[in-house]
Deep mutational scan, measured.
Amino acid sequence: MPVRRGHVAPQNTFLDTIIRKFEGQSRKFIIANARVENCAVIYCNDGFCELCGYSRAEVMQRPCTCDFLHGPRTQRRAAAQIAQALLGAEERKVEIAFYRKDGSCFLCLVDVVPVKNEDGAVIMFILNFEVVMEKDMVGSPAHDTNHRGPPTSWLAPGRAKTFRLKLPALLALTARESSVRSGGAGGAGAPGAVVVDVDLTPAAPSSESLALDEVTAMDNHVAGLGPAEERRALVGPGSPPRSAPGQLPSPRAHSLNPDASGSSCSLARTRSRESCASVRRASSADDIEAMRAGVLPPPPRHASTGAMHPLRSGLLNSTSDSDLVRYRTISKIPQITLNFVDLKGDPFLASPTSDREIIAPKIKERTHNVTEKVTQVLSLGADVLPEYKLQAPRIHRWTILHYSPFKAVWDWLILLLVIYTAVFTPYSAAFLLKETEEGPPATECGYACQPLAVVDLIVDIMFIVDILINFRTTYVNANEEVVSHPGRIAVHYFKGWFLIDMVAAIPFDLLI
Results as ranks from 00 to 15, higher is better:
L200H: 11
L15F: 06
A9I: 13
E50V: 07
H143W: 14
C108D: 01
P249A: 08
G226I: 15
R301D: 11
G139H: 15
R164Q: 06
L51C: 03
N128M: 06
P386I: 01
E289D: 07
L200F: 06
T74E: 01
A89Q: 10
R181W: 05
H309T: 07
S379C: 05
V222D: 05
E37R: 07
R56V: 01
L15S: 02
R269T: 07
D355L: 10
Y43P: 01
A204I: 01
F125S: 05
S313V: 07
A34T: 07
R176Y: 03
A175M: 04
A307T: 12
I333E: 14
H368E: 08
V110R: 01
A253W: 07
L212T: 14
P297M: 05
E357K: 09
R252A: 05
M137L: 15
L173M: 13
V132I: 14
W154M: 15
R73K: 12
Q75C: 14
G224W: 06
G236W: 05
D323F: 03
E289V: 12
R326K: 13
V377M: 09
C276M: 07
V195I: 11
G120R: 14
N128S: 12
P114E: 01
A217N: 06
K362V: 12
R280A: 14
C265F: 07
R301I: 09
H309V: 09
K135Q: 07
F163A: 15
L155A: 10
E274L: 14
D346Q: 11
G71D: 01
T74V: 01
S275I: 14
H143E: 14
G71N: 01
K362I: 09
R312S: 08
V222R: 05
Q75I: 01
P347S: 05
I18N: 01
Q376G: 08
P297N: 04
G345D: 07
K116I: 13
T201S: 15
G186D: 10
R280S: 15
V196T: 01
M60F: 08
Q376V: 08
I363F: 05
I31L: 08
D355R: 07
G236S: 08
A350R: 12
I96N: 02
I288F: 14
G189S: 05
K362N: 07
E365P: 14
K344F: 06
I96A: 05
R366S: 11
I330T: 14
T375R: 04
C49E: 05
R273F: 11
A172S: 09
G149E: 10
Y43A: 01
L349R: 12
V131P: 11
F29V: 02
R301L: 12
P168A: 07
H302K: 14
K116A: 08
W154E: 15
L127R: 01
S182G: 13
A57T: 13
R273E: 09
M133Y: 07
A78Y: 01
S331H: 10
P240D: 13
V115S: 03
G314N: 14
F106T: 01
G189T: 05
L380P: 01
L315D: 15
S250C: 15
A188Q: 11
V194E: 05
A160F: 15
G226D: 05
S354P: 14
T152Q: 12
M218Q: 13
A277G: 08
R252M: 07
P334M: 01
D16P: 15
V132N: 14
K364W: 05
L127C: 06
R269G: 12
A350H: 13
L225E: 14
I333T: 14
N117C: 15
F29A: 01
N117V: 09
F125R: 06
V180Q: 03
V131I: 15
A97W: 14
C265P: 13
F14C: 13
P240Y: 15
S239W: 04
P237Q: 05
E372W: 07
K135H: 13
A382T: 01
L173A: 15
C265E: 07
N45V: 01
R176M: 06
C105D: 10
P114A: 01
E372I: 04
A185C: 09
G47T: 06
C64L: 02
H143K: 11
V122K: 15
E91K: 08
S320M: 15
A253N: 05
